[in-house]
């Protein structure tokens, strides 16, 4: 009974994890601009990875493998959001603009004057 329960748990976690990964992938393709895409990538990245790695941990039981799995999970948890954060900051400070981000332009200290939906601010350089 325990075994069957564990098997079901592994199935649920792994399938849910892959579904979230694929959703993130679809978001990468379908969403309109960089900032929304980074949202899709980073959120589903962490959630999908968490579910898949937890599924694997449940499958292997408690041993050295599980410890390593948690190390991987821990690292992904630290590095992935940090990279996403730094990336979005870099994009913003380079002048990449979202279509309607006009009222939050104070984040980087730079101001934007473009009111249309162009994705590049006038001071943008080297972003392609």
């Amino acid at each position: 009974m325990m075994e069957v329960g564990r098997e079901i748990g592994v199935w649920i976690l792994l399938v849910a994890g892959s579904v979230f990964c694929v959703i993130g992938g679809i978001g990468m393709i379908r969403l309109p601009d960089f900032y929304t895409r980074s949202h899709a990538a980073s959120i589903t990245d962490t959630l999908g990875a968490t579910l898949i790695l937890l599924g694997l941990a449940l499958y292997s039981g408690f041993n050295l493998i599980t410890v390593k799995l948690f190390f991987v999970l821990f690292l992904l948890y630290i590095t992935s959001p940090t990279a996403a954060h730094a990336l979005v900051k870099a994009a913003y400070s380079k002048g990449l603009d979202a279509p309607d981000l006009e009222d939050v332009t104070e984040i980087g200290g730079a101001t934007s004057s473009s009111a249309d939906s162009a994705t590049l601010r006038p001071d943008a350089k080297g972003v392609n």
């Binding site: 590095t79 730094a86 980087g108």
Partner: peptide, 21 residues
Amino acid sequence: DTPIKMRVRETVILRVVGKAL
């Protein structure tokens, strides 16, 4: 053209993570 205070705050996440990593 970025105020110094802003610069420090912006780097803090990367610095902390880097220090740990």
